[in-house]
Design a protein around this nucleic acid. Structure first.
Lengths: 144, 144
DNA sequence: TCGGGTTCGGTTGTGCACAACTAAATTGGG
DNA sequence: CCCAATTTAGTTGTGCACAACCGAACCCGA
């Protein structure tokens, strides 16, 4: 189990750098719609799942209300979604897309190919990468 | 080259989430020394390379002066390093460790094992992960 | 039923990431 | 030699990430 000293630290940096590099690729693709990558993630959840509570958005994206509240406020100000209190449980707030927000899905289109190309990895390698990241995150969730 | 649509988007999110999860593991390990993960990265460069210019720190960590300037100011305020203008080229600023900053290396010790364990991945898998991330970053650097 | 504990969203404060900009020092071509 | 272009660090402004905290709403057991 030795010999990993340098490698693991490099992985942590690669992870950190790769994540920032990934959002840097998204940036010019999302900028025309005045979206950031985290905002885009929220919209993807709403496009996929329909109206969602702030709580569920937080669980899905691993973000707390300290991050989501102002982010959703900005998306609402841009007219992409609206927030409404649940009538039965006043603690809960639902985020639901406006027509503009729904239409945005088509306007943005499929960014996938551009991201895949940027990595220069094959589909097998991407699948491998996905599996490794998922397993590491899964394991880390327990071993805190 | 089809069929990647869902997968690639999941990878981008996994990357984003894994990076934040990684820093979350570092946080309690660094907090006793009042360090953040990016601050720790700067110290690692200085521990490894000795006195370094702000410019080279930026190249190494892929950060610009807008991020590094205040970060270095905070590390200086904590007494871990000092900044000094180059006498021959007044544009250049050198960051060099204080004795406290140098000693910190031993005080923090080797965090590697704890990170490796958290991932639950084997050394082969970590090596694979490292290689995939590096290649993707390398490729993305060109294809922008 | 009622009162303590929990859940939920929001606010505040700190630090990072990055774009856009500034100012000073240096460089290099004419 | 000189001045325009470049390099370098720093500043400002915006948005994300997260800890710490708050208040309101809800839940549940005695």
């Amino acid at each position: 189990m030795r010999e990993s000293t340098a490698l693991d630290d490099m992985i942590c940096f690669q992870l950190y750098a790769a994540s920032r590099g990934m959002t840097a690729i998204y940036r010019p693709l999302l900028e025309p719609h005045h979206l950031t990558y985290p905002q885009y993630l929220v919209l993807r959840v709403l496009w996929h799942d329909g109206p969602t509570t702030v709580r569920d958005l937080g669980h899905t994206l691993r973000l707390d209300s300290g991050t989501l509240s102002p982010l959703l406020k900005r998306l609402e100000a841009q007219g992409y979604l609206r927030r409404e209190r649940d009538t039965h449980d006043e603690r809960v707030v639902w985020a639901h897309l406006t027509d503009t927000g729904t239409a945005l899905r088509e306007a943005i289109g499929d960014l996938t190919q551009r991201l895949v190309c940027a990595t220069g990895l094959t589909l097998d390698e991407l699948s491998q990468l996905h599996q490794l990241l998922t397993r590491a995150r899964q394991s880390a969730k327990g071993n805190t």
